[in-house]
Simulated scan of single mutants.
Amino acid sequence: MPAVTELHAEFVRTPDAGSLSRLLKESWALVEEQQDKLASYFYARMFLSNPQLRDLFPVQMDVQRARLLGAIVTAVQSVDDPDRLDEYLTALGRDHRKFHVTPEQYDVVGAALMEALRTFAGDEWAPEYDQAWRDAYGAIAGIMIKGAENDADNPPYWHAEVLFHERRGRDIAVLTVRPLQPLEFRAGQYFSLECKHQPRLWRVYSAANAPRKDGSIDFHVRAVGAGWVSSALVRKVKPGEMLRLAAPMGSMVLDRRSTRDIVCVAGGTGLAPIKALIEELTRYNRTRWVHVFYGARDRDDLYDLPALNRLANSYPWLSVVPACSEDFEFQGEQGNLNEVVARYGPWQDHDFFVSGSPGMVRNTLRTLAEMQVPAMRIKYDAFGDL
């Protein structure tokens, strides 16, 4: 595989990456307010030009409609950070093997994207915008295809048997699954997951444990609103059923070279990857203090607090601070999680891991910036619009 800088150079026929980034962001601003309509048009053109692609997508397109387009836009707008972009796109290419996407189909996607952008930008679309998006998408597709090719020794997805299914309250379940084939991952990473109750509808969930000798993986799932997959995982899936897991993704992993103390901020089922990181730390950590802030609306949503407290009792370097934002009789901390974290600062010399809803992550990142925590020391995976 070419070096990142070589791949990155393929993005541009403009003088530098800064110019390309500017052109991409300027042109996206022309259509941003119409992105929902643009996404619908994008998929319509793609399916019209290649009807076979429709079979790769779920019947219900409400959520999916923005996913592929969103990934493309995220990538092109991250062009000025080639290292992170290369890592993201390589993982995305591996993940898309679950759809059995061929290199030729990337061309169809690119053509539909360009047509959608031109259509919704109208007369304001300029030739230099067209070239910038062509160059960017060409490099994006190239990195994703290479990522998929380099993963050819692995299956496109893993079949995994549900071993245990435990309800934790009204709308939360903890599932333990075991892949039928070896599946390597790192604590803090996440998987796309599909169940038989909602075929072709994949959703991402973080592993809630570090890798185990028996290969089993825990997932924490909350049934949310009209969430097709989350509701099925909480209310329908039973032990003995099979799930499908795509390749692991995510960079919210521990850096063993760091000697800084750690702060983990977990909201709701965002606890899953944090718990995985703690489990990994129990295997080797002796010198780093680890502070966990675990928040929810009310005490019933602190579904795994007893397990966290047991860990804290076993490992002197671990402390746990629970908080509720809407349960005023709760004996622990009160308020939004970012506010609670701020009360215990300063934190400028710590490594941070943040996991939870998009709103919770966004608020925490803003608070940490105000507290002058360097961005390079904050790790999180965004599953929504931050």
Rank of each mutant, 00 (worst) to 15 (best):
S27F: 08
E370W: 02
K196C: 14
P127I: 04
P156F: 03
L302N: 08
Y106K: 03
A276D: 00
V76S: 10
G359F: 01
R45A: 00
V63A: 13
V204R: 14
A187I: 00
W125C: 11
P51V: 02
M249N: 07
L38G: 01
T282Y: 02
W158R: 13
I72E: 06
A312C: 02
H165C: 08
D83F: 08
H165Y: 14
F219N: 05
V79K: 03
D153Y: 11
K98R: 15
L175W: 09
R178C: 04
E10H: 15
G345V: 13
A121P: 02
G240R: 11
R168N: 11
L271V: 01
Q64I: 02
E33G: 13
N338L: 04
G250D: 01
V234D: 12
Q334F: 11
V265R: 01
V79A: 15
D151Y: 12
V321Q: 11
M252F: 09
R54Y: 10
L175T: 06
W289D: 13
A39F: 02
K238W: 12
I143M: 10
E26W: 05
R170E: 14
L175C: 10
A312Q: 02
R256G: 14
T90I: 11
P15V: 04
E104F: 05
R67P: 03
V12F: 09
N336D: 01
I262D: 12
K213V: 15
V224E: 02
D261N: 11
L386C: 12
Y88R: 05
